[in-house]
């Protein structure tokens, strides 16, 4: 793909590094059988335009809830989220779910075309854009297969292709690689790095995996045990473009250790606790 309309659009009229997403005092409580579960917050976080932010935290801390709030799938119990919109005609957010969430009754191509159909693209445009992204994610030869015929890694590629094909302003990724084996995870992480470095956009990426957070993110925000708050927010110092090779550096190992120290107390606090 020599032509790539998106970064141009992002640059045009954009104030470099301006705040894209402002999360302020956001809380979420669930009413579970007459018991109020305080799942999240109060949480404050700012994400700048074009920034890749990774969010790590112990399970059940409300990471996914936060993502769902940003996607508009749920509303906060208190506080608010504000998102700057560059182009109202384009999808604001696209989500990559942990369990792929692609439709088994649609072929790979139909899955990628579905959000484009919803957004009113013509048949030709849908086809062209879907094929471009299937090609980019190495799925071209599976375009007419159904998801049941694909491996887990392939399914997650479909889900990523679907999200990128939407060309959203913000990508929301909810532990997209958590269900994959380590090798497949390495490969897809590298692919995602490449895709993002070519097609920069704002990303909020949730993960359990500290190594993944450091590899992919410009920033890593660490959440506390439930109710999740931001307890640390650190800049990742590695230059772009990156590859998986930075894992071997001493600085990387040191940062990972530092993150683990932060997280350890929180993970231990959740032991014996229940997941929401």
């Amino acid at each position: 793909m020599s032509q790539n309309p998106l970064p141009v659009a992002e640059r045009a009229g954009a104030v470099a590094g301006s705040v894209k997403i402002a999360i302020e005092g956001v809380e979420k409580r669930f009413d579970a059988r007459r018991r109020i579960v305080h799942a999240l917050g109060p949480l404050d976080l700012e994400i700048r335009s074009g920034e890749f932010v990774c969010l790590v935290g112990p399970s059940g801390c409300g990471k996914s809830t936060l993502l769902r709030l940003l996607a508009g799938l749920a509303r906060p119990s208190a506080g608010d989220v504000r998102i700057g919109v560059r182009d109202p005609r384009r999808p604001l957010t696209a989500m990559v779910f942990q369990d792929y969430s692609i439709y088994p009754w649609k072929t790979v191509r139909q899955n990628v075309e579905f959000p484009l159909l919803v957004n009113g693209l013509s048949k030709g445009e849908r086809r062209a854009r879907a094929d471009q992204w299937l090609d980019r994610t190495g799925l071209a030869q599976f375009a007419d297969s159904h998801p049941a015929q694909l491996s887990g890694g392939m399914k997650q590629r479909v889900s990523i292709a679907r999200a990128f094909a939407m060309e959203p302003e913000i990508l929301l990724m909810d532990e997209p690689f958590a269900a994959l084996d380590a090798q497949m995870r390495f490969i897809l992480q590298d692919e995602l790095l490449q895709l993002w470095q070519e097609h920069r956009r704002t990303v909020l990426f949730i993960t359990h995996n500290l190594d993944e957070a450091l590899l992919l993110g410009d920033r890593v925000a660490v959440m506390s045990a439930r109710p999740g708050r931001i307890i640390a927010d650190l800049e990742v110092p590695f230059d772009r473009p990156r590859t998986g090779e930075i894992r071997g550096s001493a600085e990387f190992a040191e940062l990972e250790q530092q993150l683990w120290q932060l997280l350890r107390a929180e993970v231990e606090a959740t032991r014996g606790g229940v997941d929401v």
Partner: peptide
Amino acid sequence: LADGGWANVVERTP
């Protein structure tokens, strides 16, 4: 957020 030259601002509120 207003500094960013956004077309508009989407809010997610309770």
